[in-house]
């Protein structure tokens, strides 16, 4: 998805993991994914650089669809769709 498309996307759940370093954002994502339904969209805020590489890898292994990232000033918004 393009950045514009992602920005217009309505997430079913937003989890703010900016206050944690590895593996905080990943654990936050895992917890949040358990709280949404199949096909719903989860948005993760992370200030940890590694998350940008980690979350797509994790999604691939877990079967979720990684939609893309939107870079903000001091953090990243990551979008994924639950399988």
């Amino acid at each position: 998805m393009t950045t514009e498309e992602l920005k217009n996307l309505t997430s079913n759940k937003v989890v703010d993991a900016r206050g944690t370093a590895c593996p905080g954002p990943l654990l936050a994502a895992k917890k949040a994914v358990g709280e949404i339904g199949s096909g719903e969209i989860l948005e993760i805020y992370s200030a940890d650089e590694g998350t940008k590489v980690d979350i797509p890898k994790w999604c691939q292994k877990m079967g979720h669809e990684f939609l893309g990232i939107v870079e903000e000033d001091s953090y990243t918004r990551l979008f994924m769709k639950k399988a």
Binding site: C22, P23, L26, L27, K30, K61, M62
Partner: peptide, 11 residues
């Protein structure tokens, strides 16, 4: 602990 919790995120 980081590896362990990370693995738990992978179920």
């Amino acid at each position: 602990m980081i590896i362990a919790t990370g693995a738990a995120a992978y179920d």
